[in-house]
Amino acid sequence: MMKKGKRFEWGYLLLIPGIGYILLFIIMSTYVMIMQSLGYYNYTGESGFSLQFWGEVFDQQFLDSLLYSLKIGIGSSMISIVICYPFVLILQKTKGKRILLSIMKTPMFIPALVGSFLIINIIDYHGIVNELLVFLRIIEEPLRLRNDKYGIGVLMIQVWKNVPFQMLIMSSAIESIRKDVVDAARNLGANIFSIIRHIILPLTLPSALIAVTLVFIGTFNDFAVSNTAGPLYPNSLSSLMLRNANVFGEWNLSACIGTMMMITTILLVSIYTLIAKRLEKLD
């Protein structure tokens, strides 16, 4: 028994690479960021506790950016999952599903910036979409999809980029539902809609939550796509943060924005989780 206890203690050493990494890069850097927002760790000038930056950070520009980022984050994660579900369900029944899936995965391997430019070419003022719509006389004037006020271009790019990612998660979730469970439902008289409603949706909900959350985190905090295809004002919190730090040298303000991004993310992820738990109970 004694021996067993001892070996167990040594075993903890194996955790050092993981825990050390978490401590050093995640907890430390988060700590530094939060402290910076409170006036510590200044690179130049004095360091010391101050609430001045928190007083300054909540201006109109910040609120506009927060709203914009929330819209992009919630919008793209939700639109993606809504598109993703039927896609994956249909794909399950399609011949050559593996090939189709791997083709659809390609956007995941294209860097966000490159993807952004690719899509911009399509939705630009004189891009294919607009030319086609005008040619078909559906619209008189080309639409302004790129750098438009509402960030529709950004949403389109994010959805394009994230649907495949969610499909990856969702198709493995749906595949992991045992076939005879679906058969049992059919056998008891369930049609395809009842099966989706009673079996597939509830069983894939946890995966869907992960898919939505991951996409939300990515798109809420996105920088590259918003900067290339997003509106000139307001822009994402990430750009605001970068501008404050790089252009104005306001590191403490940036830290405040960073902290707010983190808090918002945690808050929203918690809300998602709560909703999902409720939905699960509902069934």
Binding site: R178, D180, V181, D183, A184, N187, G189, D283
Partner: peptide
Amino acid sequence: NTAMCFQSYALFPNK
């Protein structure tokens, strides 16, 4: 309108 009792049970795991 058949009802099958599966060898693998095939119960609905969420219910």
